[in-house]
Design a protein around this nucleic acid. Structure first.
Lengths: 147, 147
DNA sequence: GCATTTTAGTTGACAAAGTCAACTAAAATT
DNA sequence: AATTTTAGTTGACTTTGTCAACTAAAATGC
């Protein structure tokens, strides 16, 4: 096993952590926290998702999630419908205003990434994205991402 | 500007955030927090660094850092020497046991990354690292990482 | 079909992480 | 010499996240 490879990957991890940190700080305009937005996104992507599904999906503490849901309910961004065949759980959906708010936030992140890419030459941009796709592919193969 | 590229980059960000999250959870054996380790690392890499330099380097709140330093001082991991030409600041150094502890922690992360890479074929590993290097290069060019 | 165990979600109490403003003392500026 | 800036500390606070206890419904096992 090549030590240089290990160092390189660690360097990349540091680099990318910092980058994402900056991105997150910028787009988190203070209104919502990252986990909150991820919850909105999860519901947006999968209307009717249940809390326990989100817990697995986002690897989240259930009490933490429960409170996030309560907050969004109070804001009328989320609605709950009891699951007919299971009286313990709820189907979560975005309300119209919840959807609107999510779209708005989502557009903001989109634009932020756009801004980064727009500073690159066409060639760099292509290479960048291709590299990202490759990394994702390689690390998604079985084994690499286990807990 | 290609919307697909933007989506790909966002997908990568989500993917890599999750990966780093898992890594961090694993190696943060509970003993130290991430910022704490980054502080140790900063001092390790640059013996005699001052608090205000760390603040810039790690983009950290000074009160937060101050308390981290106090904790490490109490553990005898860090020593302070006043800067001769500036009575307000201190040169920070790792003590022998501080260094030892840092090395230990550092080895743990190293092994963790090693484990990931060891699950890949030689080819995948090479491609992965090359991709990481390329991403870092491209995004380090002026403009892309500004606050 | 009744007793036990498991699961979904909520709540309370708390710990950890991070921020903000006020402060002290030294250095730099004018 | 007076004023402003800078380094670092401290107090008070908010946000973020965790843990364990709890309720009610569902699934399991005799």
């Amino acid at each position: 096993m090549d030590n240089n490879h290990i160092s390189e990957m660690r360097a990349f991890n540091r680099f990318y952590t910092a980058l994402i940190g900056v991105l997150n700080k910028k787009f988190l305009n203070g209104k919502y926290s990252l986990p909150e937005l991820r919850v909105l996104q999860a519901i947006h992507l999968q209307e009717g998702i249940t809390a326990s599904e989100i817990i697995v999906l986002l690897n989240m503490d259930k009490s933490y999630l429960s409170r996030i849901i309560v907050r969004f309910e109070k804001k009328r961004f989320i609605s709950k419908k009891t699951v007919p065949e299971d009286g313990r759980s709820y189907h979560l959906c975005l309300t119209a205003s919840g959807k609107k708010e999510f779209i708005k936030q989502d557009a903001a992140t989109h634009n932020q990434v756009k801004e980064i890419l727009s500073q690159l030459s066409d060639n760099d941009c292509k290479t960048l994205i291709a590299s990202m796709v490759r990394i994702k592919e390689i690390l998604s193969k079985p084994g690499a991402e286990k807990k």
